[in-house]
Design a protein around this nucleic acid. Sequence first.
DNA 1: AACAATATCTTGATCAGTCAAGATAAAATG
DNA 2: CATTTTATCTTGACTGATCAAGATATTGTT
Lengths: 228, 228
Amino acid sequence: MKIELGWLLMATSTVENYLKAVLRQEEATGSTTVGEVAKELAVTPGTVTTMMKHLDEEKLVDYQPRKSLSLTLEGRSAALKVVRRHRLIELFLVQIMGLDWSEVHEEAEILEHVISDRLLDRIDVMLGEPTHDPHGDPIPDRDGNLAQVEATPLDEAEGGNYRIVRVSDDDSDLLGWLDENGLTIGEEFALAHPNRAAGVLEISRSTGAKVQLGVQAAGQVFVEAISA
Amino acid sequence: MKIELGWLLMATSTVENYLKAVLRQEEATGSTTVGEVAKELAVTPGTVTTMMKHLDEEKLVDYQPRKSLSLTLEGRSAALKVVRRHRLIELFLVQIMGLDWSEVHEEAEILEHVISDRLLDRIDVMLGEPTHDPHGDPIPDRDGNLAQVEATPLDEAEGGNYRIVRVSDDDSDLLGWLDENGLTIGEEFALAHPNRAAGVLEISRSTGAKVQLGVQAAGQVFVEAISA
DNA sequence: AACAATATCTTGATCAGTCAAGATAAAATG
DNA sequence: CATTTTATCTTGACTGATCAAGATATTGTT
Ligand SMILES: [Mn+2]
Ligand SMILES: [Mn+2]
Ligand SMILES: [Mn+2]
Ligand SMILES: [Mn+2]
């Protein structure tokens, strides 16, 4: 007769990663599947099946085998807490510790599971309760409210003037390259009429500098149109 | 036929804790035993036996069942790296993050296993390559050299004038109490002739304040004699 | 030495997380 | 609709870490 305190209080870091994966896909595409989660976490589908049965018992996901898979409110809230941690940690590492925006994701991927609430709070305060991480992703607030970022992937944009509002944070090489070319959050540029056939986009900075990038890379850069 | 790269490179956090425990006891008493390690890590002796056989294979400890147990050079070096991490992290949490010296040990106990070398380096530089942690413990340098702290446990001191050079860092309550009474590293005081029978020591600060503390607590405070 | 007490070891089990590979259901295709 | 393809599930096995409890060696005592 073992006392089962705190299973729902004490999500293991593995569990947190599964919840995050489901959340990310729900946010990105409105829903998810066992297969997608397996791909994202680089495990076999069977492993995900097993885990989802567990999480369903813990009421963190709603899982109907072969039918549907989604976060419960509780699961979503747990996932958002981890995302909050992740993004605050990333910003902390860039802003306070002076790490590069291209090298903080991996570190945050681990620290998000182990930092104490107390330390996270210090970080939050130290950063002035920020709303966005170094890559332009919104930071969920303490109550788990997540702001929407509506932005167009650059590879789908027409010719015109744009500002960078978000960049996918998991491709370290791309982030490094963007940084070298001065293409960081908030930067503005003009996009030439896209020449789709070639699969290359050309960008002009106000400095006169021109930069080419492939559609592949462009798909990870999110922009909003500006007037100027 | 699985390729066994990196077992010695990649000590799991459990392994790191075993190595640290052995090191701590070797430093404290010159040697250690399966039983002592078991006590320190709050596991059963059998578990330690099993682990030591593994560590012996990995050449991290020298283990002769029922005979002797000690760190190899490699094991010692690995343990010292973890200790270095632990202490740098503690100091970072106090100095940069503004946490209390009574609440950093637990946090460091976890972070020591997950912080990247890159981040640790930033911390080290940010702190000015410090030599001692918030509790007066010496921080091993990059090459694994550990300075000796020779200091007397307060409960063994005669009457006279002393300076606090080190405090045991794992008793949060004691640390809190010491802090409230202004008894931090570097502070000086006069110890009245100890009245051993009562098990209570009396300390006088230069401010005139007097403080009593039990031998139990005094045993965790380490001092050096001063002239004044 | 003989016996008791203590320390340590061994064995068999459990738990979380995972994979491989075969079984099955659902979807897509002709 | 019958068949192929794809997605998902199930089962059996493995790893690292652990405990319980019985077996054994060592040490201390008379
Ligand atoms: Mn990230
Ligand atoms: Mn990010
Ligand atoms: Mn400590
Ligand atoms: Mn310390």
